[in-house]
Structure formats: C-alpha cells, structure tokens
Design a protein around this nucleic acid. Sequence first.
DNA 1: TTTCGTGCAAACCTTTTGCAGAGTG
DNA 2: CACTCTGCAAAAGGTTTGCACGAAA
Lengths: 132, 132
Amino acid sequence: LPTSARRQTRQRGAIWDVLSDVPGRHLSAEEIVDLVRERLPGVNTSTVYRTLDRLAEDGIVLRTDLGSGRAYYEPAREYAHHHVVCERCGAVAHLHGEALGSLASRIEAETGYALGAREISFFGVCPGCRIS
Amino acid sequence: LPTSARRQTRQRGAIWDVLSDVPGRHLSAEEIVDLVRERLPGVNTSTVYRTLDRLAEDGIVLRTDLGSGRAYYEPAREYAHHHVVCERCGAVAHLHGEALGSLASRIEAETGYALGAREISFFGVCPGCRIS
DNA sequence: TTTCGTGCAAACCTTTTGCAGAGTG
DNA sequence: CACTCTGCAAAAGGTTTGCACGAAA
C-alpha cells in the first residue's frame, strides 16, 4: 500500500513509540505532538501530520472520526472495533468488530456498497452522565 | 427545545426553503449559503451558520457528519435513518432507521450507553466505484 | 547521490465570535 | 419597546502546503 518506500527517521520512530505506548487510548494530533516533543523536542506539527498520514495510508495506524471536528489516531489492532461516544462528556467505549453481527452484510445487500474496514462511531450518553 | 422564541425573518425563511426544496440531498453550509443567495442576495455566512444551529437545536433540521470535515444539513424526517458514504466518490446511500435492528439494544447492553437519535455513518465503496 | 523527510512560515477551510445596527413581535 | 437577528470583520481551530535544507538509503 505505501506509495513509495518509507524512511526510518527519529521523528517517525518517536511518533510510533507514542502511539504504541498509550494502549487503548485515542490521541488527537495535538496530543501526539505534545507527547512526541517530550522525547524529541522541537518536532514540528506538520511533520507529525504528514507522518500520521503515511502511517494511516500504510495501515499501521487508524484514523478515527469521533464526531468532534478533529481526528484521533491509534495503532491498528488485529481485530476491527467500533466506538460509542458519549455526547455529553466525550468518553469513548469500544465495541468488538463482531458486535455489528450480520448488519454489515445486510447493509451491503440493501445498498450495494462494499463496507470497508473503517471504524464506525455511535453516539449516546454514557452511564456516568446518565445518572447526573 | 428552543432556548428562546424564534423570529420569522426573510433569511430564516429562505434557508428553510432551500433545505426543503432539495429533497433527499445533504447540503453543506457552503452550498446552503450559495442557494440562499440566489433567493436573497447578500445573506451572510454567519447568519446561515447561526440559523442552521437554531434549526438543528429546535429539531427542525438534522446536522450530519459524513466524515469529510464539514457538516451536512437536511430537513428532519419523520423516521430516523443512517448513511453509507462512498469513500471514493462521496456518494451517500440511505438506510432505514430499523436497519440497525436489534443492534442498538445490544450496544446498550454491552456498553451501558444510552444511544441517542443521532444518525450513524458507515463507510464503504459504492457499486459504481467498485466497477471502475 | 538520489530521493524522501523535516522545519518553517504562511495559507487554507470551516466555523465561531464580538459588536453595533436593523428588524420582529 | 424589548429583545432577537443580521451583517461585518476578525479570529479561532484544525490541518495542509511550498520551499529549501538535512538526512536516509
């Protein structure tokens, strides 16, 4: 999938390290910039964006739209999963890929679209916010 | 739901007319601005954004995230529906609200989140793009 | 030594905001 | 008359781009 050969640079390494050291979390580009700078001060924002683009293009990281106007990144896992986002506090719950069950094939049958591997975001109110 | 009383202005009327005259289509704010100006030249961008906010707040229009970084608007329908977006050409297919079937309750059971009425976007490749 | 990656600065695009004045109820 | 809505201009927020230099392969 890579458009061309990738080079191993300190920046790319640090970005990947940050991503893999924060398991189960979704990081915004801004958060990634901050964390990368702890290891490699002075790294530029556009370097991070460009590298994240390439990592996503190569299928190494997943870019996810959690409905907030900015993108979130996480290392690609072995199994697909989806998200349920709390509309009040932004908390994100994970859903196993199989949670969709037969829905994917029903959607494909109904619309003719071939569903991709992309993650889906559902929206609701988390247990904590429901109480208060 | 309205925070306060709404006033009937020419701008609000034109915006609503544009939305209801384009059945089945999702319009971006920019497209709405252009179409409104055909009827009411000089209407300001921020007026359109503010009015769309109010219409959405009042439940009269639906704001949808089709994964493209901008919001799309459509008149609220009687029944909920969801979207399948082509990742290549952006074509959008509709899905009846019931298409999710028992998924909603299974998600609620699994995560504890109460799912809202918000529309869901799925992503795939449309029949036309699959051929070429 | 060729090509790709980086830093910098500036631009981009969508959306939001403060404010003064016009329009509605 | 009170209060909302509008236009304007400016800014915000997240992301992208052109270019020249530096670093991998």
